[in-house]
Design a protein around this nucleic acid. Structure first.
Length: 306
DNA sequence: TTTGTTGT
């Protein structure tokens, strides 16, 4: 049933890729030089032009979190739209849908091991003030909608510090998910599967996000149709994906990629039956996953040798 | 165990 749906994705790919490439090109024309008293000065790091912002700005905490972003995003950004970094995950926010495009995590044994200093029950779902109010989702949007506020970066992957778990409860990290049979069951099983990978692999890099897949309707034409909830019309994705890369002790890399429909799913269906080729997700999402890894450097994709 | 919502 899933693969049949995914066959209808060809139209989406052109739009996604074109938009992404235009964004890239704009960045390359950037000119950081500044004109002062008719003279053009380049902004060298050691030579602050206006004196208000200098290279000597205290950087202790900021430097630390910058290193963490580099670690999490080691294998590349899937896209560059409205990127936000938090202490232990990074996301790209879609202002049009009020749901993230993608959320990136780097998970190890240490990140998921039991930690008495961290208590999930102390966490509150909270709007993300860093998003413009026009585009910010609110708890009220989800209330009474019948949908869960489903984590993209799972709370259980961030147990190193209370602040890390707290930040996964920002609504920027949420998407409306069917509760019974999906978020609390099949999707939860997929999240547990990803955590279990840290028992076998030293490092697990996990990208999670929504899909809005076209469906053929009675008139024979394909349409993308999705519900929206609340005053801020938060989009209810038709599907969710996960693309995972695992680093083994010998340095070999293993990719797994999944798509699950946002609906009540049978408990007996194994997680592995939701595997799809990563390219299918890339075309549907308009994103490129792990683009710093040449696909020939992967030892396996979805359990099969490359 | 982890994933959540609702009503009092």
């Amino acid at each position: 049933m899933i693969s049949k749906r995914l066959l209808h994705l060809a139209q989406l790919s052109a739009v996604g890729f074109t938009g992404y490439l235009i964004g890239q090109q704009d960045n390359s024309n950037r000119d950081d030089s500044v004109v002062v008293n008719g003279k053009k000065l380049s902004s060298l790091p050691a030579l602050p032009i206006f004196g208000t912002v200098s290279a000597a700005t205290p950087y202790a905490e900021g430097g630390k979190s910058k290193d963490r972003v580099t670690e999490i995003m080691k294998y590349g950004f899937p896209g560059l739209d409205n990127v936000r970094s938090y202490d232990d995950f990074v996301l790209s926010y879609d202002r049009r849908t009020r749901v993230p495009h993608w959320v990136f995590e780097h998970i190890t044994k240490e990140h998921i091991s039991k930690n008495d200093a961290v208590d999930r029950s102390k966490c509150d779902f909270k709007p993300d003030e860093s998003i413009h109010p026009f585009f910010r989702s609110q708890n009220a949007d989800y209330k009474g909608s019948g949908f869960d506020r489903g984590h993209m970066a799972a709370a259980g992957n961030h147990r190193l510090a209370q602040q890390h778990v707290d930040q996964t409860f920002y609504l920027t990290n949420m998407a409306p998910q069917v509760g019974q049979g999906f978020n609390r069951d099949s999707w939860n099983r997929l999240e547990k599967h990803v955590r279990k990978l840290t028992k076998v692999y030293n490092n697990v890099y996990c990208c999670t996000g929504p899909l809005y897949l076209p469906r053929k309707e009675a008139d024979g034409k394909s349409y993308v149709k999705y519900q929206v909830i609340g005053a801020n019309t938060v989009a209810v994705p038709t599907h969710f994906y996960k693309v995972v890369v695992c680093e083994a002790g010998d340095g070999s890399l293993h990719m797994e990629s999944y798509v699950m429909p946002n609906q009540r799913l049978p408990d007996e269906t194994p997680v592995s039956s939701y595997m799809v080729p990563p390219e299918t997700i890339e075309k549907a999402a308009g994103l490129l996953f792990f683009d710093k890894i040449h696909r020939s450097k992967l030892t396996t994709i979805n359990g099969k040798k490359v």
